[in-house]
Design a protein around this nucleic acid. Structure first.
Lengths: 258, 258
DNA sequence: CTAATAGTGTCTGTAAGACAATATAAC
DNA sequence: GTTATATTGTCTTACAGACACTATTAG
């Protein structure tokens, strides 16, 4: 056994290497619901089921770079531009049988994008869909998550992508209060009410307005622009923007702004 | 470009696959300090520097299984036994140049083990060391982390292992209050004082005793055993144990008990 | 003016920090 | 008893939830 371990450790080419991919959970909030971009599989295995967009990691490509590349390809985001999104490594899934064709280890990322960006991606690509995610009550990791189709019925999910989606939703919930990530779901200038709507959609529960406002403003992450929203038939709300410094300040391995 | 992408996605064998390893941050608290097991490299590259124990992921081996195997090999833990530790996937590091020999993507795990288990591992193996970790003040990810040798000077760390260690420490700090993981650093029965010492070592700051006690007991994770510690020259403290149910209850992708 | 929402003030309950008082075991 | 620490009680402060009140804009 020690001999075998020795060989294993010092002659890695002696046994087959796994393929490594990145899979992306591209999320946004639309119509008060947290949604994820899914792509219908055209081939076996899991033909017809819905999968996360992904791609193989190139031989000289970093993991973040691969995630950005897939994001650009699938979501139609030019890599050089700054659409104001968020990208963060989520978790790595590597069960030996997660793909029936061969051994594939996937590094899952999640991205947050403004609604219009993802809506445009859906229209551009084919077999794409922005599916509302419905997570059963309770924060347990073994709770069931459904991605709903246009008719409100759950879509069949390919591979282990339900677990990946569930992990993403729970991670996002956990980070809501401690990370500037959720701002990536809104345009550059937004009202506090819109931000609260985003939080409520992600948590799936209503929040107290004065408390929410206090909490957010006390963090000092936002600054008022002096401008107001327009087009309302009632009192327009102040537009806020994220302080420049907060776009850099990041928690533990906290992801990156796009 | 679309053609190239197509080939990339559908003919993964057409380009070389990366090697995939697991690296383990094996931590414990000793002498009031958070320590990690490090192994001195016997070969180039980084010969003489100190590295995290790790190993290649086998062709039919899951990531968690690989981490457990390396844990058993390096820390001398029999895989079947239940020493009361904690194992959790940390983050995946895959910069193309992180290893000069070849492309290696590593899935980092961190483990928490009682002090005596790791101390035994250090004595058994060779070139092993349990190094106190000192993190510069401030939670910033770009702060410097040093692993101290026996003479108190920082050890040179191999590859990107400083970043991995830093990530582990920050992750552990963040989970302290929300996860039953820290209990893995103590024996099965322990006093609240010992638990507070562990928390203080990890956070690097003293805590308020009554508040700590209230917080922990209010979580209802612990139950008194009715027994007292022995061998003290003063009033012995009550011994607590973790409720059985809490060993299962786990937060978001929260790791596993050993 | 009315309608509708923005934004604020205030009360209350919960939980943490600080500090002190009491309890208990070894000697 | 003394000593050292466990364990509990209490005061104060900070903050979140609840609710109501005031402000502002369109029409």
């Amino acid at each position: 056994m020690t001999e075998a371990d020795f060989l294993k450790a010092y002659d890695p080419a002696a046994f087959p290497r796994p393929s490594v991919t990145v899979d992306l959970v591209l999320m946004t909030v639309r119509g008060g619901a947290l949604c994820s971009l899914l792509q219908q599989r055209q081939d076996h295995p899991h033909k017809g089921s819905w999968a996360l967009p992904g791609g193989f990691v190139g031989p000289d490509e970093g993991l973040d770079a691969a995630a950005r590349r897939v994001l650009a390809q699938k979501a139609g985001l030019p890599e050089e531009e700054a659409p104001g999104g968020w990208l963060e490594q989520l978790y790595t899934f590597g069960a030996p049988d997660r793909d029936p064709r061969m051994r594939i280890i996937t590094v899952a990322y999640f991205a947050l994008l403004p609604e219009d960006v993802l809506a445009r991606a859906v229209k551009t690509g084919s077999g794409l869909q922005l599916a509302p995610l419905r997570l059963a009550e309770g924060e347990a990791i073994d709770a069931h998550l459904a991605a709903l189709g246009p008719d409100g019925t759950p879509l069949p999910l390919a591979f282990d992508h339900e677990i990946i989606l569930k992990t993403a939703v729970l991670r996002l919930r956990g980070k809501l209060d401690h990370s500037p990530a959720p701002f990536a779901l809104l345009p550059k200038r937004f009202t506090l009410r819109a931000l609260q709507d985003v939080h409520e959609a992600i948590l799936g529960t209503p929040l107290n307005k004065p408390a929410f406002r206090r909490r957010l403003l006390d963090k000092n992450w936002l600054e008022p622009t002096g401008e107001r929203e327009s087009g309302t038939s009632y009192r327009p709300a102040e537009l806020y923007r994220v302080r420049q410094q907060e776009k850099r300040s990041v928690a533990v391995q906290g992801g990156m702004t796009l």
